[in-house]
Amino acid sequence: MKKLLQVVACIVCACMMIAGSALAKDKIVVGFSQIGAESAWRVANTDSIVSEAKSRPNIELKFSDAQQKQENQIKAIRSFISQGVDVIAFSPVVETGWEPVLKEAKRAGIPVILSDRAVDVQDDSLWVTFMGSDFVEEGRRAGNWLMENYDRLKNPDKSSDVVNVVELQGTVGSAPAIDRKVGFAEVTEGSAFKIIKSQSGDFTRAKGKEVMEAFLKSEGDKIDVLYAHNDDMALGAIQAIEEYGLKPGKDIIIVSIDAVRGAFEAMIEGKINCTVECSPLLGPQLFDAVEDLMAGKELPKRIVTNEGVFPAEVAEETLPTRKY
């Protein structure tokens, strides 16, 4: 259904382009090649870009869905070049193999913006800026929040000065899993916080629950903190903790990443203590950058998405404003 809508949206865009080409001289034309619609996060990402473009009268968006295929993205970028758009933006499905098509864009004098994923090319003059979340920073934020707030949440008179943390990693080898682990380890290194168990929960609820169950069997009441690389795994783990007979959010402090709506609902119930945002809502930032670029401003090579940290105290007031 979503795909169909996007196809329709493309056709509508194309029609408007033909009708409006005479008028479009004063508009900034942006070609965006999206990866696809593989997850709820991605769908929210697309919605953000399309709706932001609509709300800005000086922007005209040409949107293309690549259905998770690099060849489709390359085709889309070539067609953007031949149509002579002002700016090309895209979320590269994979890191490698972009040199030829990016060189074509450079030769045509069209600036390229990378959205939420990076490319692996020798010559970094082929793209203007890379915007998106910094996964390492997300891990650092989770670690920092934990270290600042742990004593307040759990009885500080605990005799042991070591805090036992268990970690639910994302899919092995994926960039967010690697970076979030590194960021968290970086800030907690040398502190009282020790990771005693770390396993992959594949970013899913079912796996998160299964792995947490096993952690509880082997470590039991020793576990003080759960750090999950995404909210879904944390939500699964909460059920395992409850079935074990402990109180999530009280007996075990829970910190996770993503800030999806389900995590806010759990925070209101007091079962998650904090979630670090990983926002798919890149639309406003993307078109700000496009406007700056067209106004002749120099863009930084790396634009990090504005992201917040949401502790449980603000969950109730924030939930209605969450878009994903």
């Binding site: 092995v172 080898g173 168990k197 299964e210 952690f215 069997k217």
Partner: peptide, 14 residues
């Protein structure tokens, strides 16, 4: 699987 999870084999080699 449960052995791996309770004993803590590194996820990369699981």
């Amino acid at each position: 699987t449960t052995t791996i999870l309770t004993r803590g084999v590194a996820p990369e080699v699981t």
